[in-house]
Design a protein around this nucleic acid. Structure first.
Length: 341
DNA sequence: GACACCTGGGCCATCGTCTG
DNA sequence: CAGACGATGGCCCAGGTGTC
């Protein structure tokens, strides 16, 4: 037996020695095997309790070559949308007995490559990835070649055979734009979003809604920038300087809209009174901004749970058909698109 | 011989240590 | 210096022991 003063964790060998049994018997008892009589089982449990034994799941994983670790890679934790998605992913995976290894790439493809390698080295059972801007399309095939199930979420990597969970970007922005058009706005800006498939999809929704009303798509009113609160502020300032001044803006996401509200406030204007604003995502803060934000709800928490569910079923049935989940966007009308002077 | 109960050895990946 | 070997912790499997 080990030195009782040692800080080394208590193992089943210690428990076996304490109970005068073999490690195999201890293992059977701890697994609840019916092969061991109650009296012997009680002896084992008493020894385990006395020594403060704690199950070592890593050893179990080592033995049967499995892993209970799942990597989740996101790129912008400062955006509450990703935090809410993460909560959903984590909730579902923990329910299924997994532990989440989270990594943040800060939109850096090299950093993303590095964290994916680390997850491979850790023997991750699967990976949920929200790809950083500029991620090569070949990434899904690369991870597949490692033998690690992968689910791409939020941002599609374009055509290819991979599992995906995201929102219907085109439809969502279409609905938001239509809402502004129905309220009588004709000169509408588009704020935020730098590049990539998601921006293209959202701009398509924007264009389609304008085209339906026979309105010209004006490239000057599209102010591209990283989708952050800061850029929401900056792009709104830029938009307000354009003559004739637009009366409304569709924002790339809620965080951009929050920044845009600050820019309005700085000029003595108020969203919903002097200017109409829509967001995208419906993060929890959207209901409590000043004014509360009209936005496109894609239920980030539920989206995260969906991504996790797809991964779990892929782990369970590796050969199954590719799954694609597109959250149905729903417009939530609040005060930021209220009566406009 | 049948059955209940229990055990030893091997396995997994990886590192450090030992041996030739 | 290279290769062999032991150690790690828990599970699985084949098989040993004891009792009826």
């Amino acid at each position: 037996m080990r030195n009782p003063n040692s800080t080394h964790p208590v193992t089943i060998l210690d428990v076996a020695a304490e109970a005068n049994l073999s490690k195999s018997t201890v293992s059977l008892v701890l697994k609840g095997s019916p092969l061991i009589p109650a009296e012997t089982a009680d002896r084992v449990r008493a020894a385990a309790s006395k020594l403060g034994y704690v199950y070592n799941s890593r050893a179990g994983e080592l033995r049967d070559g499995t892993s209970k670790t799942i990597g989740v890679v996101v790129n912008d934790l400062a955006n509450p949308f990703f935090a809410e998605i993460l909560v959903g992913v984590e909730r579902k995976l923990v329910e299924a007995g997994y532990i989440v290894l989270m990594a943040h790439t800060n939109e850096d493809v090299d950093r993303q490559e590095q964290v994916l390698q680390t997850m491979r080295e850790q023997g991750a059972a699967g990976i949920v990835l929200c790809p950083a801007y500029g991620t090569p399309r070949t990434l899904t095939k690369e991870v597949e070649a490692w033998g690690i199930p992968l689910v791409v979420m939020v941002r599609t990597l374009g055509p290819g055979k991979y599992d995906f969970a995201g929102g219907d970007n085109e439809r969502g922005i279409y609905v938001a734009t239509k809402h502004l058009l129905d309220a009588g706005h004709e000169r509408i800006g588009f704020l935020g979003g730098l590049a990539g498939v998601v921006l293209e999809q959202r701009l398509n929704g924007f264009r389609t809604a304008l085209a339906e009303r026979k309105l010209r798509f004006d490239e000057e009113l599209v102010v591209r920038a990283k989708p952050t609160r800061q850029s929401g502020y900056e792009t709104m300032c830029a938009l307000l300087d354009i003559k004739p001044r637009p009366t409304a803006a569709v924002c790339y996401n809620d965080v951009v809209a929050f920044g845009a509200m600050s820019a309005l406030g700085e000029r003595g204007m108020h969203a919903g009174r002097d200017f109409a604003l829509t967001g995208f995502d419906n993060v929890q803060d959207a209901a409590h901004s000043n004014p509360p934000l009209t936005t496109v709800d894609i239920r980030p928490g539920a989206l995260g749970e969906q991504a996790a569910s797809i991964l779990l079923s892929r782990i369970q049935t590796p050969g199954q058909a590719r799954q694609m989940f597109l959250a149905k966007p729903q417009l939530v009308v609040r005060k930021s698109t209220g009566a406009v002077a």
